[in-house]
């Protein structure tokens, strides 16, 4: 569980370049959520999630973040424990690969947690298999030789091998082709059975609509609200006031309604829309 209370954050305070990224943010993310965070570039999404594993320190008198029983506004935080608990996958995570073999790279996280070689290796091998790569074939290869999609899986494995309870993903499918996107999203669903809480930042409304059970909308550093996907995407007024664009499915549903075909506007997937049209046809 993550609880964000009255969180504010200012970049470069007291300089001519000062810039407030977050204003009095309040959020509650429950265990088991697939929590979406959306908002245009510069809305403060990345700044917000970087608080969740204390990459960004909470500024003085700027609120609190509580992860399970850990208060991150405290002076001393057990960083090791926190970072084992909250796994963070950045945009283009393949850019963080560094070791000479895939196995060593994936073992980096577990070893930093203080595990011995054997245990770290076991975890790494399990994680590599979990992300859908053939461990025997790939473990001893250099990560730099792999294809783009494989690299991203290896990077994901590097975080999963730490056995996080909360996984934060920043645009996990950016830059991938449609097939690659689907594969990564399937993979995330598979991971979710071990790591119950998933938080995902995305610009891809189709993915958000399809996978998330709760969605926080950020705009200029403020939380416009937390909604269920049907609440948010079913209401044009809400979407407009939050500055969110329509998922393609919603866009089609809206267009059909305008032409007098009564389909439910809160459909979230292609199949749902298909069923709705079928119903409308009768």
């Amino acid at each position: 569980m993550i609880e964000v209370k009255n969180l504010s954050f200012v970049y470069s305070p007291k300089t001519p370049f000062t810039n407030q990224a977050l204003f009095d943010v309040n959020l509650r993310i429950e265990t088991g959520d697939f929590f979406g965070i959306i908002g245009s570039t510069g809305a403060g999404k990345s700044t917000l999630v970087s608080h969740f594993n204390a990459l960004t320190k909470i500024q003085k008198n700027s609120g609190a973040v509580i992860v399970d029983d850990m208060d991150l506004s405290a002076k001393k935080i057990d960083l090791k424990k926190l970072r084992a608990k909250v796994g963070m996958v950045f945009q283009y995570p393949e850019h963080q690969l560094f070791a000479d073999t895939v196995l060593k790279d994936v073992m980096f996280g577990p070893k930093n947690l203080g595990l011995n070689n054997a245990e770290a290796e076991k975890r790494a091998r399990d994680a590599i298999e979990l992300v859908g790569l053939d461990c025997k074939e790939i473990a001893e290869r250099s990560p730099f030789e792999l294809s783009g999609g494989q690299k991203r899986r290896v990077a994901l494995a590097g975080v999963i091998a730490m056995h996080p309870e909360i996984l934060v993903l920043d645009e996990p499918t950016a830059g991938l082709d449609p097939k690659g996107k689907r594969e990564i999203m399937d993979l995330i669903l598979r991971i979710k059975s071990d790591c119950p809480t998933v938080i995902m930042i995305s610009h891809n409304m189709d993915e958000i609509a399809e996978y998330c059970n709760k969605i926080a909308v950020l705009k200029y550093g403020r939380v416009m609200g937390v909604f269920s996907p049907r609440e948010l995407f079913g209401s044009e007024e809400l979407l407009e006031s939050c500055g969110v664009e329509l998922p393609l499915v919603t866009e089609l549903a809206v267009k059909l309604n305008a032409l007098g075909i009564a389909v439910d506007k809160s459909v979230l997937t292609e199949s749902e829309l298909f069923e709705e049209i079928k119903k409308a046809v009768g």
Binding site: S50, N53, L55, L79, K80, R83, A84, V86, G87, M88, F90, Q91, P93, H95, Q96, F108, G109, N112, L113, G158, V159, M162
Partner: peptide, 16 residues
Amino acid sequence: EETDKIINAQRSRGAA
């Protein structure tokens, strides 16, 4: 910016 991002990514993986 890139350096910042990589440092943060590795810190998230427990690098001290």
